[in-house]
Nucleic acid binder design. Structure first.
Lengths: 137, 137
DNA sequence: TTGCTCCTCACGTCACGTGAGGTGGC
DNA sequence: TTGCTCCTCACGTCACGTGAGGTGGC
């Protein structure tokens, strides 16, 4: 129906830039039809893009996303492929948890530092109140 | 005392590569002494490196880390500087929380996908048990 | 001579951003 | 003619990685 859409539209729909879509094409992740020089993206292209974006969201590189898409394309009936994907996901899950851990540490560091600085500010204000200095430096 | 140390030692101590230290120097974040052509890092350099690494850990770019170090160097007595830093930290804290949120979503996506794939595998095995097919494709 | 650490270019990588200059159809 | 969307180079960015080729002192 409304299927083949131009690059700008697809970009808007997914919140990416046209450059990004062309870049993915360059990397072999997408291969839209051409109408003259203009690109037209089918439903299949959109499905792939969705996968790509999800893959990126969970921290895969474009290279491994490409591999996974290719496995998907092999009419992935084979259980071997599913198991491969599953173990890869498991690995990535570990990575994600580690990242989460680091972010938590960073948040901890940050709040500690902020308390420290806030304390310095308070001290300063206190001493300004106690010992009003001359204006000149 | 054991103060000025060569690049390899400092790198090992902080878990970075020598290239990284040279890169930071290039960017104006570090400026070790030279002994001939060799670099020697003082206690001050180490203190700075510690700040740099903490800054990176909480998600600042090298450019803003540099700014912050420079402010630090201005014998940062001024409350204005502290307040600037504080508001910058507050902003970054928001960024960190958002990142944390995204990671959590990613973990959610990942586990959902894994359950899905695991389910597919189970179905496959079940149907293999029920309807033993001929060996030939 | 071999082995280790250090050095300086300088190109490569990853995932795009950002112009520059040009085209096509309302 | 103006405005919009599309196109193709091609260099820039960020934070380094990775050789290539050479030096200095045990």
């Amino acid at each position: 129906m409304t299927s083949p859409i131009p690059i700008g539209e697809l970009a808007r729909e997914f919140g990416v830039t046209a450059r990004t879509l062309r870049f993915y094409e360059d990397k072999g992740l997408l291969s839209p039809r051409r109408e003259g020089s203009n690109r037209l993206y089918s439903r299949r292209d959109r499905a792939r893009l969705k996968q790509i974006i999800l893959g990126k969201a969970v921290g895969f590189s474009l290279d491994v996303i490409k591999e996974m898409l290719e496995i998907y394309d092999l009419k992935d009936g084979q259980a071997v492929h599913l198991e491969m994907a599953l173990s890869r996901f498991a690995e990535q899950l570990v990575v994600l948890r580690r990242q989460r851990q680091k972010i938590d540490e960073a948040i901890g560091d940050m709040t500690r530092t902020m308390n420290l600085v806030a304390g310095m500010l308070r001290d300063r204000q206190a001493s300004e109140l106690e010992i009003p200095r001359e204006a000149a430096e």
